[in-house]
Design a protein around this nucleic acid. Structure first.
Length: 117
DNA sequence: GGGCTGACCTACT
DNA sequence: CAGTAGGCCAGCC
């Protein structure tokens, strides 16, 4: 993968993140896969750091595979991300988001199965 | 080029 | 459920 390829991939990542609906989340690994690089979870964070401010990328809708925020709990980044998610209706239980409920795919499954809360 | 660092992940104890 | 081990790979000395 050349750096030009990577730059292109970064833009794809931005598009994927832009496409996450309000009140739902994707994991870094899922974003990487949807953008076309299944093993590039760690690179997703780099891509988001590069995003221009005026782009208003909903970066807070990306969490790790455990449904947790990947910032230290005492950091301002952690609080900012959690506040924004909760403002969208995402619920934290013991610091964890239930991905079956709020994950993009999980949300679709819920609609199809009509599972109760 | 070599070594280290991550807003990570999976598999396995 | 918690913890560990190994893999991953762009960026920055």
């Amino acid at each position: 993968m050349t750096s030009a390829d990577f730059d292109r991939w970064v833009k794809t990542v931005w598009q994927v993140v832009q496409g996450i609906p309000r009140g739902h989340v994707l994991t870094y690994g899922e974003v990487a896969r949807l953008a076309g690089m299944s093993r590039a979870a760690r690179r997703v964070s780099q891509a988001m750091r590069r995003a221009p401010r005026d782009m208003k990328l909903p970066w807070h809708r990306v969490v790790n595979a455990q449904g947790k925020i990947s910032f230290p709990e005492d950091s301002t980044g952690y609080r900012r991300q959690k506040d924004r998610l909760e403002a969208e209706g995402v619920v934290f239980l013991n610091g964890k988001i239930d991905l079956d409920r709020f994950g993009y795919q999980g949300a679709l499954d819920h609609l199809l199965w009509g599972e109760p809360l």
